[in-house]
Amino acid sequence: MPRTGQSGAPVAWGARSNGAVTAPPDDCLARNEWICGAYLSTRRQILLDAVVQHLQLTFLSVLIGLLVALPLAVLARRRRWAAGPVLAVTTVLYTIPSLAMFSLLLPLYGLSADLVVAGLVLYSLTLLVRNILAGLRAVPEETRQAALGLGYGPLRLLLAVELPLALPAAMAGLRIATVSAVSLVTVGAIVGFGGLGNLIYAGMNTYFKAQVLTASVLCVLIAVAADLLLLGVQRLITPWSRAGRA
């Protein structure tokens, strides 16, 4: 696959696709239209593979990000000295543009899916730590004192009182992190592991409009679906917040 992304120079029509399918000369593929049913039917497997890779990369990085963010946020809440450094480091990480982040990880991971996951973990981590910490800090002091008065130990206080009350803020962070990850996976195309981004990258180099549009729309659909799914989960696991609002 050619890696050059030179500006807009249209490739000759003949070089349209990977040459896997020779379409009749009069269909929407040959005319290189934006919306093309024939593209969907002939490239179903390619699209499916890309969607699966996209979902795997997103899920894995958000999950690892969550597993790392939770202890960090709890540490920053419990130990006053830890809050400054944790927030400073995550802010710096978040400021570094995604393409640069992936590139900085290249010597560590090489051209692999691990590189994309590692980069995305660092971004989700930032969003999750900030939101979980905000949620933990918003737990009313009287509530904590009441739990301590009932004889709760530090662990039980965390698991039974603080974390449940921080759930709405944490879930809001999780939704933002997931939607961002879905969108950032596409940049992984630079190392060949970008899910739907790979199709966009290949479509750009071959001036293949239907492929670029289809992959882009699928990306947005995945982001919206993931957001709605997490919103549903949030409603299910925090029934009290809905009752309180009604």
Binding site: L184, T186, V187, G197, I200, M204, Y207, K209, V220
Partner: peptide, 14 residues
């Protein structure tokens, strides 16, 4: 946030 920057860039390019 939901719209990938890269996708928009390539769509505009075409």
């Amino acid at each position: 946030r939901a719209v990938p920057t890269f996708a928009v860039l390539v769509l505009l390019l075409l």
